[in-house]
Amino acid sequence: MSTVTYAGTPVEVDAEGFLEDPAQWNEQVGEQIAAENGIAELTDRHWMVVNYMRDSYLENGTAPSIRTLGKASGVPIKELYSLFPKGPAKLAAKVAGIPKPRGCI
């Protein structure tokens, strides 16, 4: 575990850069994490996915599967992969300040 400062906010992250405490997150933190991971600008469509991931995690304690993400976030699977080419569920979770999803699907 280490501390990184995003947008003037110190946050604790794990070895892979996922926030340890979702409460330390804000939108600027999300934007910086995205930029660090190859997404220069978060569009409205990115935010739809990120917000859905975050809300779903805060409500259920787990991140949704890619299947659920494709059905319920309002962004279909094809587009998820064009928005987050390096893995939609993983990257959206990182940007959303929630732990890395551990599901296999």
Binding site: I77, Y81, I105
Partner: peptide, 18 residues
């Protein structure tokens, strides 16, 4: 229950993933 889709949907999902 584990959110594993039936085969036709799963195959389509994989195709959609690129």
């Amino acid at each position: 229950k584990l959110d594993i889709p039936p085969i036709p949907e799963f195959v389509e999902m994989i195709a959609d993933s690129g």
